[in-house]
């Protein structure tokens, strides 16, 4: 199929719209001037200042800790929840359970943040890294559960039954058969949870205390006052990391695909 002029135009304009703002951001992060919108010359000055800014480095570390902890916890809980929803049959309170899985996906962040904060105050939990981890785990486990259950739904149940038939206990059937097959979905779920946690401003702002400042909170308070060159540099670094990650991930999956094809070809040759 060839694309008509109209279609080519909409693709070009569409992707320019999606990517141009980020490209500009990246380009101007190498601007020498403190006046962000006036180009005076190439410089990596702001990267240097960024790396010397202890507050930013601390915030980055807190953010990373929170994301690593909460995404791992969310992956375990979300996978269990997905398993219970898809495989659990009918149990008491199933409707409430699935409602609680889906509700956080559509709940405005301000409300999730507010309600969790009120809970933490109510039970007297001191706010800091722990409370952010709890909050992030709660909403990102729902995303993990949606991702994993969409894989579980298409999963051929007779594979599990075959494992049970061959003498596996339910737990070892899950570990030896189900888990390896749904692993790609679990990994995507973890990545999604990790990114959501890295990204979150609103819920973290509500649930944090003075002891823990995450990067989004730091960025937000900085950019509220306007565009700043350090933030441009920081944004460029974050965009670079994500791009690198996506490229690596797609290379790995491509390599896996090629390997798979080679294996299939070998099997083909042998059976021929």
């Amino acid at each position: 199929m060839r694309l008509s002029g109209f279609n080519i135009t909409s693709l070009t304009l569409g992707f320019a719209f999606l990517y141009l703002p980020m490209v500009i951001l990246v380009v101007y992060s190498f601007n020498e001037s403190r006046l962000v919108t006036v180009w005076t010359g190439f410089s990596t000055r702001w990267y240097g200042e960024l790396l010397n800014n202890q507050a930013f480095l601390d915030a980055a570390w807190v953010t990373f800790k929170v994301a690593a902890l909460s995404s791992t916890l969310a992956t375990v809980l979300g996978t269990l929840a997905a398993y219970a929803l898809v495989r659990g049959g009918r149990f008491a309170g199933r409707t409430l359970f699935s409602g609680m899985i889906y509700a956080p996906l559509v709940m405005p962040e301000v409300i999730t943040g507010l309600s969790l904060l009120l809970l933490f105050i109510g039970i007297g939990l001191e706010r800091g890294v722990l409370t952010i981890v709890l909050a992030h785990t709660t909403f990102s486990m729902c995303y993990v559960s949606v991702v994993v259950s969409s894989r579980l739904v298409t999963f051929d149940r007779s594979l599990e039954e075959a494992a049970l038939d061959l003498g596996c206990s339910p737990w070892s059937a899950f570990r030896l058969v189900t888990l390896p097959i749904i692993a790609p979905a679990v990994i995507s779920g973890w990545l999604l949870a990790f990114t959501l946690s890295l990204d979150d401003l609103v819920i973290a702002s509500f649930t944090t205390g003075p002891s823990a400042t995450t990067l989004p909170i730091k960025i937000f308070s900085a950019v509220r006052l306007g565009v700043s060159p350090e933030i441009n540099a920081l944004s460029t670094l974050m965009i670079a990391i994500v791009t690198l990650g996506v490229i690596v991930a797609s290379l790995i999956s491509k390599q896996k695909f090629v390997q798979q094809q080679q294996r299939e070809r070998q099997i083909d040759n042998r059976t021929r």
């Binding site: 703002p21 980020m22 989004p216 950019v223 565009v227 965009i239």
Partner: peptide, 29 residues
């Protein structure tokens, strides 16, 4: 094309919003 549409999802929401501040401001691009 699909990947290009999804890719922005993985970059920070905050940064994507912020990128427009420099474009739209009175002395912006």
């Amino acid at each position: 094309l699909m990947m290009l549409v999804i890719l922005p999802f993985w970059t920070s929401f905050l940064i994507r919003v912020y990128s427009w501040m420099g474009i739209l401001s009175q002395e912006g691009y």
